Simulated scan of single mutants.
Amino acid sequence: METETALAHLSELAVSYSLSVLGAIVLILAGIIAASVLQRWVGNSLRRFPNFDETLVRFLSGTVRYIVLALVLVAVLAQFGVQTASIIAALGAAGLAIGLALQGTLQNVAAGIMLLALRPFRVGEYVDASGIAGTIEEVGLFATELKTADGIYILAPNSELWNKAITNYSRNALRRFDLAIGIGYGDDIEKARKILIDLAEADERVVSVPEPSTFVGDLGDSAVVVTLRYWTATIDFWSARFDLTQAAKQAFDKNGISIPFPQRDIHYVPAEAPKPPAKPRRAA
């Protein structure tokens, strides 16, 4: 009798647990399928936005997938009668502790998400973020890789870049430059201005709109500063600057326009000769 009761009890447990196992398998399979479907849907939806970074798309879609899988795990544990409330509380406490321990890292991740979403700079652009300057090599979730003009590698935390003003020298299509050259006070100002304008108009890298212009920018101590203002494509900025500076010097030399050195007039005022001491008077 006792044996029959035990067998009946075991059969009930077997049936009960088999149903739980079957339900857990169904939940796991359904959860994996749902996680994959949601991951693809989020990824495809985000890719519809122009200029949305692929790294951020993968991060957000992967995050959605892991959230769904975590919910499925909780549901499977509940299927076997496990008290999930305590597990969720423990996971929350562990997550809080991990978040406090990785506060700086999470801050970099948040800054990386904002940098990838707003795109203040892209790969290949030259930027300066309050002293952190270089060409962008790669933008990651934790840090950004840069290369300076002299080939030095920089790994900058994203929080450092996000919390500072960013100057992007490559973003706009055109850049302006003022080529200021000092000429002598006795030289012909109009002739110097015409030479500079002719140089700018002859250079194919100088755009016609806005058109180049010249003006007297300053009256210095030893020179009249004549300025050529012109615009070029950003990619041609440095080459045009170097070439036009050299061409301006050669053209001024050829046309007899001087570029004076700093000068200062010194007036010498001789001091008065010392007077001879007065002779003492003799007593009468």
Rank of each mutant, 00 (worst) to 15 (best):
R48G: 15
R281T: 12
T234H: 04
I195F: 15
L199C: 06
A271L: 10
N255P: 00
L244Y: 00
A8S: 09
M1I: 06
D188S: 04
V269P: 00
A129D: 02
R193H: 01
L141M: 02
Y17R: 04
R264W: 09
Y268Q: 10
I259T: 09
A94H: 08
K275M: 03
A251Q: 07
G182Q: 01
D187M: 12
L13G: 05
F215S: 02
T135D: 13
W162P: 06
L69H: 09
A8N: 03
A165M: 04
T105K: 10
A283N: 11
Y66V: 12
A14F: 11
N51V: 08
G220F: 04
A200C: 03
G220A: 03
V225S: 01
F142E: 14
E190W: 15
G81H: 09
V26A: 04
S208I: 13
T148C: 00
A6S: 13
T144W: 06
A30T: 01
A93V: 10
G131I: 06
I259V: 13
N172R: 12
G140A: 04
L10Q: 10
P260V: 07
D203P: 00
I88S: 14
L196C: 12
A94W: 11
F80N: 03
L155V: 12
L56C: 09
G31K: 02
I154C: 08
A110I: 03
I136K: 09
G112Y: 01
R229G: 04
G99R: 11
V225D: 02
F215I: 03
L228N: 06
V206S: 09
E4G: 13
A70E: 05
A240Q: 01
E137W: 14
N51D: 11
A202Y: 12
F59P: 07
R58T: 02
Q83P: 03
F49R: 01
L19A: 09
V269G: 00
K194W: 14
A200M: 07
I132H: 15
A156Q: 08
D150E: 08
I136V: 11
Q83D: 10
I33Y: 11
K254I: 11
L100K: 04
G186K: 11
D150T: 07
G95C: 10
R193N: 00
L146E: 03
E137L: 15
T63L: 14
I181M: 08
L10K: 05
R47P: 10
R193G: 05
A173Y: 06
G104K: 05
V15Q: 08
A149S: 13
V64S: 12
S222K: 00
V15D: 08
S45V: 11
E204Q: 04
G112P: 02
A90L: 05
G184D: 05
G131W: 01
V42P: 07
